[in-house]
Design a protein around this nucleic acid. Structure first.
Lengths: 231, 231
DNA sequence: ACCTGAACACCGTTCAAGT
DNA sequence: ACCTGAACACCGTTCAAGT
């Protein structure tokens, strides 16, 4: 008496067909559920009910996987300020705020973004939007490219850095080595650091960010003149 | 007849006594000889003729080790521009050039610096030097703190990024995903990116860097005025 | 042709047990 | 008290061998 084949074929939920989309989506799910640190080739393979080797058909390596996952999250960046009216600098700021806000909740991704080149569609859309805003503000195209690069870098780094602090509870990270070193700074050796003291870390992320955006955008709109010689 | 104790005690070159300095110095040697990637707890322990567990007496974890090693290399930063005469902006630039040059040859360390907080003595000396220069240029202390942060961030990132390109041979990284994506960009969807094309990556590291330093320092010396309302 | 089990060559960190 | 062998719990990536 043989078992009924049609029933015994499989007991567990259908194993979804693999594809790049499925792999990246599963990885994004892993980030959402357990954080970026848990997104390893092996864990992801387990999640997809296969062996790690199979993933290499769809992603080049772990770095590329991380970059693809980040792009999934970049879909959440609010680009509406690009097509809104209002001061262009404010609109740049709002886009960056949306970008940073996203990364604040996904610190591991911010750190990954710091050491990889992004190239996904949502990243391109973000860059395009910022370039459009800078163009509308009268920033020359070549400077706009540089400015967007740096704006995104600083935004990413601020998210990544915040995540370092957040790993420990205390407000300005009592036990941070840098804070300790600054507090211990000898005024005779490091007068400026000693004078600033904890003010070295002053200013909220947003305050610093807004200041930087204003400075950079102001500088980018100025046609650069060569520094005057000893005349 | 017992073996002569004084001779048989050890056959190999003296195992150097462990200490934080010895551990960090050995790690720096590993970086010099084989690159930052090879500086793992296990390899370092092997180098020091002990087990990995022993290292945890002297360093908290791998991140702290990397940060300590980086500080060793930061000893090479040329801080003489701090006490020289000449345009203060030039002198800031020269210090940053020295810092970046160092990291260009140690890409792994640049990447490490991007994701850790530094706090070593040479890092403090670098920050102190930059703060002194900005102060001499009339930058208010609180803005100077922000500016130095960002200057070092951008310098570090540019070294880390260069290292990503350098990992592959071709000049503007032919096979870079981002370059490919930009080249493929549809002008209808991404007009600004398509218009810029390869110019998105234009400008040498130093050109971009110098431009950025000038913009930031110009902005930092301006007393910020609240953006004028709709008046 | 396509996919993957199993292996290779590693990791960081902890802790019980030694001296 | 100080130090560490050995173990625990993982990694990324490759490739020979299957279907």
């Amino acid at each position: 008496m043989s078992r009924t084949p049609s029933v015994s074929r499989r007991e567990r939920p259908a194993k979804p067909a693999l594809s790049r989309e499925a792999v990246v989506a599963a990885a994004a799910g892993l980030v959402r559920a357990h954080g970026t640190e848990k997104v390893t080739m092996r864990r992801l393979a387990q999640e997809l009910d296969t062996g790690p080797a199979s993933l290499y058909v769809y992603v080049r390596d772990t770095a590329e996987l991380h970059s693809a996952v980040l792009d999934v999250f970049l879909a959440e960046v609010d680009l509406t300020p690009v097509t809104t009216t209002g001061d262009w600098r404010d609109r740049v700021w709002r886009v960056l705020e949306s970008y940073t806000g996203l990364l604040y909740e996904r610190p591991g991704l911010a750190r990954a973004a710091l050491v990889t080149h992004l190239s996904g569609p949502h990243y391109l859309a973000l860059v395009e939007g910022l370039l459009a805003l800078l163009a509308s503000g009268g920033v020359p195209a070549d400077r706009a490219a540089w400015a967007v690069d740096i704006l995104l870098l600083v935004a990413t780094a601020s998210a990544a850095e915040q995540s370092i602090r957040d790993a420990t509870p205390s407000a300005p990270a009592e036990d941070d080595d840098l804070v300790a070193a600054v507090t211990r700074a000898d005024p005779a050796v490091h007068p400026h650091i000693a004078a600033l003291g904890a003010d070295l870390f002053s200013g909220s992320g947003p305050d610093r960010g807004r200041w930087f955006v204003d400075v950079l955008l102001a500088g980018a709109t100025v046609t650069p003149r060569p520094p005057k010689e000893t005349s």
